[in-house]
Structure formats: C-alpha cells, structure tokens
Amino acid sequence: MTTEILRFLASIHGHLGALAAVALLHPAILLWNGRPATRGIRLSIALTTALVVAVYSMGIGLYGDYRRLVKRALFRTDVTAGFLFETKEHLAFVAVVLTLGAVLPSLLPGPENADLRRLAARLWAGAALACWTVGALGTWVQSARGF
C-alpha cells in the first residue's frame, strides 16, 4: 500500500469513527431510563454495533501499513503524539468490548426489566466516551503529522 492509499483509507476510517461516536450516543440516550427496546431502538443497536465493529476492524487492518509508512516519522515528529496513538488503540478496544457487552442487555430483557436496560445504557455511554476520546486523540495525532 502506498502512503496516498493509506491516507485515503485513514480518512474514511476517521470519518466512520466520528459517525460511530455519534451513533453510540443514540442507544445510550434512548435506554438511559430503562425504556423497552422498540423496533427502532433495536435497529439503532444493530447498526451501531455493526458500525463500531467495522471501524475497529478497519483500524486493525490499517495498523500494519501505519507502522510501516508512518509510525517512525510520527515518533520523530512528536513522541507524545506517537504514544497517544497507542492510547487511541487501547481505548478503541475498550469501546468495542463495551459495545459488544451492551447488546444483549439491551435486547434480551423483557419490558419489566428496566434495570438491565439502564445498565446497558451505561455500557453504551461508556463505549461512547471511549469512542469520543479515540476520535479526539486521532485528530490530535493527525494534526501533529498529517499522513
């Protein structure tokens, strides 16, 4: 892969990541008070989960070329930004596992189990928090050395 293709794919990854950060807020808000999952909420949960997993997978797929083409130059330019990229990776994993952990508590409980949906909402919110931080760190790294 050339740097230009990596730049293009990283841009798509970043835009989809921003979309995922916003999408994660949707189930968090809708389920916050334990409201039963309607058809619309179920659709939101399915699409959000698919988006988060897809963006994470894309990031993992791009990492090899990032390491080969960008990482050394990034560390030469700004060591802090280089390590923040690693922090971003760690938080991305946190966001994914929290997302996956939130799916069943959102969908399985019956109408009377509002407490589990409130727990699911906190997991969605936690995933959103991690995802927003990932986005902020990604922007920081990008501004330190655009690639």
């Binding site: 946190v94 596992v97 952990g101 939130a102 069943l104 508590p105 399985l108 589990l116």
Partner: peptide, 23 residues
C-alpha cells in the same frame, strides 16, 4: 419468551464479560 430469569442472567453475564474484558 423474553424477560425470563435465564435471559436476565445471560444479559448480566454479557455485560460483566464486556466490562471485565475492558478492565
């Protein structure tokens, strides 16, 4: 059928697994 005790347990176990994996 939704909302059975088994569903509650599975839901909570999944939530625990997600949070534990992150930690």
């Amino acid at each position: 059928m939704k909302g059975t005790p088994e569903h509650r347990r599975v839901s909570l176990a999944t939530a625990t697994a997600g949070l534990a994996a992150a930690i």
